[in-house]
């Protein structure tokens, strides 16, 4: 072996770049694409990746298929009413088919799911109600996550009395039995669909959702990149809007799904008790069945099964999609 040290070849390894100046080519490459288009592309890329992850989960796809099926029903109803079905017979609220009597009539070629005790078409009722269920669920979910995310982020970031106030409020809201409260409210006021969405959104938004989102925000607040943003000169609002909330969004989206489930369920219960001022809904269909005395009559299954099954299926579907999203959002839950 040689005794003297050879020239070390690693000395030539270049750690830094070639200098401060950009060559013309790079400069043009930068100008070629406006920033917003780049961002749009990135967003599309992120969504596509998440979609691919989502599709790996069978449960989520089943949920999504059910949701799409019901969305299809909701969209098809106005078309059918306008072109195929005679409004006098098929209107979900004031329709009546004299030829199908006695009512409730079992499923037939004219009425695939039969008629209800008042002679109205069950399929038409079912399809008409679907739109309200979706709107109710979405509005309630949007209100919930808007409240939950902003309060959660603020409470976690600022702490102090803001935190104390909203967390105690959350404790209070959580201890209130929501359904009972809604029943009482329904007795005191005329609850209609938008009001119901608002009440459910507020109850859920100031309650458990806030607590969960806040705890997540707390883990984001202590990340070093938040400190780095502060050192960069970022204001509180910059940090909350640019760092904390974007990192909360996946969780937020997840809780939207669960709120939809809660809202549809609440609607069913209130309508069943006849406490909701609504033209037609799945809950109201069961209510009508019950008040006409057919609730436990298995001979007239077409009165109770379609709305009951729909409530169950759509609630389950949103829950399943939520679970699948959970796996997209939390890589730890994913299988390798």
């Amino acid at each position: 072996m040689a005794t003297e040290e050879r020239h070390n070849p690693f000395a030539t390894a270049q750690p830094a770049g070639d200098g401060t100046t950009l060559d013309q080519q790079e400069r043009e490459r930068l100008r070629a694409q406006p920033l917003w288009r780049v961002r749009l592309k990135l967003l599309a890329g992120t969504l596509w990746n998440n979609w691919k992850l989502f599709t790996e989960n069978k449960i989520g796809l089943i949920g999504l298929a059910i949701i799409l099926f019901y969305a299809g029903l909701a969209l098809a109803h106005p078309l059918l009413m306008g072109r195929v079905w005679d409004p006098l017979i098929y209107d979900p609220v004031i329709g009546f088919d004299p030829l199908a009597a006695p009512h409730p009539a079992p499923p037939s070629a004219q009425h695939w799911l039969g008629t209800d005790p008042l002679g109205r078409d069950v399929l038409s009722q079912l399809m008409f109600s679907t739109a309200s269920e979706f709107i109710l669920g979405m509005v309630a979910a949007l209100i919930t996550v808007t409240i939950g995310t902003s309060i959660g982020a603020l409470a976690a970031y600022f702490g102090g009395w803001i935190d104390t106030f909203f967390m105690r409020l959350a404790d209070l809201v959580i201890t209130l039995p929501a359904i009972v409260l809604l029943i009482v409210l329904g007795g005191l006021f005329t609850l209609d669909l938008p009001l119901l969405a608002l009440v459910i959104g507020i109850l859920s938004g100031f309650g458990a959702t806030t607590v969960i989102i806040k705890s997540q925000a707390l883990t984001i607040k202590v990340r070093t990149y938040v400190e780095a943003a502060w050192v960069a000169g970022g204001s509180h609002w910059h940090i909350i809007l640019r760092h904390i909330i974007p990192n909360l969004l996946p969780l937020t989206f997840l809780y939207m799904m669960f709120t939809v489930t809660d809202a549809i369920f609440a609607e069913a219960i209130l309508s069943y008790f006849g406490l909701l001022n609504i033209r037609m809904s799945w809950g109201l269909m069961i209510h009508t069945t019950q008040s006409a005395g057919y609730l436990l009559n298995f001979q007239t299954w077409w009165l109770i099964v379609p709305p009951g099954l729909s409530i169950t299926l759509l609630c389950a579907a949103f829950y399943l999609v939520g679970r699948a999203l959970d796996e997209v959002v939390n890589p730890r839950l994913r299988k390798r």
Partner: peptide, 14 residues
């Protein structure tokens, strides 16, 4: 930013 990327050895910056 591109200049800085060059400077810290992440090139080409684009």
């Amino acid at each position: 930013v591109a200049e800085l990327l060059n400077l810290v050895g992440l090139s080409p910056p684009s």
